[in-house]
Amino acid sequence: MEPNTAAMTEAELVKLAQEGKMAAFEELVARHRDKIYARAYSMMRHDDEALDLSQDAWIKGWQRLAQFQGESSFVTWMTRITINLCLDQLRKQKRQRAESIEAMAEESGGVERQMPVVTPNPTEGLERLELRERIDRALAQLSHEHRTVLVLHEFEELEYKEIARRMSCSIGTVMSRLFYARRRMASLLAGLKRDKLE
């Protein structure tokens, strides 16, 4: 008789999955698939790509289950796999596309260098749903490089050094990208607020 996986704890499911029980792994996928998909979407901003990469991540997770030792939570471990796959995909896409002026301005800041500082906080007093929508729209307008560094730092709470390792760049580049990404976000959020008021 198949065990009732729905009633099991995450640790029990992981252990069974490591022993090769597909039913246990299926339950883990069911529990965390939305979070993994959402992270892939936040980096790729494309439904189909996010769906494919999230599934790739689960397959890779299954193949590497023996390496999971429980230092972090299972979903954190899976999220790291997802991020790495997304970064690989973004690197491939970057190689394929021609270097544009916009891309070259990523580290030097482009228009963000001349932007006035936004004060006060443009998101103050917003309802959570509206705030989320506004942040989502602003994130969609960032370049891949700026968005990625923001996702890794603000959402995944990775340190500069770790982001640099994952993005295969220097710590200085990470700091610069993060700085301009934040400045651009502040500007976009303020702009969206102005649009709303007008």
Binding site: S42, R132, I135, D136, E154, R182, M185, A186, L189
Partner: peptide, 14 residues
């Protein structure tokens, strides 16, 4: 300005 973004984003992902 930087702090506003840093503190606003976490927990507010769609």
């Amino acid at each position: 300005e930087l702090r506003a973004v840093k503190e606003t984003l976490p927990g507010n992902e769609t």
